[in-house]
Design a protein around this nucleic acid. Sequence first.
DNA 1: TAGTTGACCGGAA
DNA 2: ATTCCGGCCAACT
Length: 86
Amino acid sequence: MTMTFKEKVLKIVSRIPEGKVLTYKQVAEKAGSPNAARAVGSFMKANYDRNIPCHRVIRSDGAIGHYNRGGRNAKIALLKKEGAIE
DNA sequence: TAGTTGACCGGAA
DNA sequence: ATTCCGGCCAACT
């Protein structure tokens, strides 16, 4: 079974528990390509699956990044609500 | 097959 | 604290 990098990424993200966050880079590392953070972002923007908590993925510098469902604002609100951030 | 595209990263100015 | 720039990666066309 040829699992694309993209699918690995989606699987990893889908397993991020509530109240926790991973950086794009960490996701890339877990997926087996430590320097593919950029690619990870590209896939997330293309993913609209609600089962995947893509709002739990943020940037390494602590910035929130983007969110295709509600925008950064919604992303921040969600993370606060889940207790992942202040 | 090669060129384009970005929800990124880290260092420099 | 910001803004800019080059590098990196896999999918898409």
